[in-house]
Simulated assay, not measured.
Amino acid sequence: MEKLLAAFQNASQNGLQSIAAALSEFSRGVADELARAKPRAIAASDDDENLPLDAALFDSAPTVAVPKHAKFEPLTEVGHRFLMAAQGVFIEVRRPWLHVIQQLTKLNEAGPRPPYGDIEPKIELAFGRLSAAVPYLQAFAEEARAALPNEHAAWIVWDQDKQQLAYKALHVSSSTPGSITFDRPTLAPHESLAIDVHSHGDGAAYFSAQDDADDTGEVKISGVLGGLGEGGTPSVAFRLCLLGMFVPLKVPADAVCKVPEPA
């Protein structure tokens, strides 16, 4: 009888443990489901049949409030989001080589202000400063001189595995003194475009309307080198492209376009 009672108690205990484990798993599943179903801050009726489309758009680029009292947690995953701050609306972008926060709109001083915290703009590069790319830009300048009078182009990519920049030559399909077309290379999963640079040959460096159109919607540093011909005055133009927003970057022309010394 004692053996039977002991066997019954063991079976009961094992059964209770199984039930407890099942209930714990169920609770976790319910919590995850509730988290996924958490309503977004979208001004639409919950029963609107098109709400899932807006929810998907919201999830791809959410809008969050900057905390006034708690510590601000920066974006850690690759992507972007909009920040509602006391000063106005900011955009925050994360790439393997970049973390940036820039103001999009400023609130009217006389108007109502949301009860949110302040945020400071920042541009943080994984490779430290843009000067880290100067050796690659100098190499490109030499290639661009060799391509005169036509334009030339190249990419400088960030290698996440090696934690360093790398020069990537492009296959140029067509090049003239006023235009260039090239095939966009397929990058490895650990590579991402950091700097897109092209030359204007003998002409001055500037961003044309075509450059604006090409750079809109991308996240990268864009650069132009000009005045590369013999006797020309070297010039450069650089900017950070943020999904249609352009932030000018100061780069000294003499550091990039070194004029070859006479033999």
Results as ranks from 00 to 15, higher is better:
183 D>Y: 06
111 G>P: 02
236 V>D: 15
47 D>K: 02
6 A>V: 07
120 E>S: 11
134 V>T: 13
131 S>K: 11
45 S>L: 08
61 A>V: 07
155 W>E: 11
19 I>V: 15
143 E>T: 06
188 A>S: 09
36 R>Y: 05
63 T>I: 14
252 P>L: 08
163 Q>T: 02
218 E>S: 15
128 G>Y: 03
196 D>M: 13
92 E>W: 01
156 I>T: 08
25 E>K: 09
220 K>T: 14
196 D>I: 01
153 A>T: 13
168 K>V: 15
213 A>L: 10
51 L>G: 04
71 K>F: 04
78 V>K: 09
237 A>D: 08
230 E>G: 00
144 A>N: 12
227 G>E: 09
88 G>Y: 06
126 A>H: 11
164 Q>F: 01
202 D>N: 07
171 H>E: 15
53 L>K: 02
45 S>K: 06
257 C>R: 12
43 A>F: 08
247 V>A: 04
173 S>E: 14
38 K>I: 00
260 P>H: 01
208 S>V: 09
50 N>A: 08
204 A>Y: 02
119 I>W: 09
255 A>I: 06
28 R>C: 00
50 N>H: 07
100 V>G: 03
81 R>E: 03
127 F>A: 03
180 I>C: 12
241 C>D: 15
232 G>Y: 09
83 L>R: 04
223 G>L: 11
5 L>E: 11
85 A>K: 08
176 T>C: 14
169 A>T: 14
65 A>M: 10
161 D>S: 05
5 L>T: 05
205 A>L: 09
121 P>G: 10
68 K>L: 10
147 A>Y: 10
7 A>Y: 05
165 L>T: 07
109 E>D: 05
146 A>G: 01
19 I>H: 05
245 M>S: 11
10 N>T: 02
111 G>I: 00
214 D>F: 15
141 A>F: 06
104 L>T: 09
20 A>G: 00
221 I>D: 05
34 L>M: 07
163 Q>K: 14
44 A>K: 05
175 S>W: 08
29 G>Q: 08
240 L>F: 09
43 A>R: 14
38 K>H: 06
147 A>C: 09
27 S>I: 00
36 R>W: 04
32 D>V: 03
101 I>A: 02
143 E>D: 15
140 F>E: 12
179 S>F: 15
233 T>S: 14
93 V>N: 10
198 H>V: 02
76 T>H: 05
37 A>P: 01
214 D>W: 13
80 H>G: 10
171 H>S: 12
6 A>K: 11
251 V>I: 15
254 D>V: 13
37 A>C: 03
263 A>N: 04
123 I>N: 04
139 A>E: 09
31 A>L: 07
7 A>Q: 14
90 F>S: 00
255 A>M: 12
237 A>I: 02
222 S>R: 11
53 L>Y: 11
229 G>T: 08
179 S>Q: 14
238 F>S: 10
165 L>F: 01
31 A>H: 03
125 L>N: 09
201 G>I: 11
102 Q>D: 14
64 V>A: 05
73 E>P: 00
162 K>R: 13
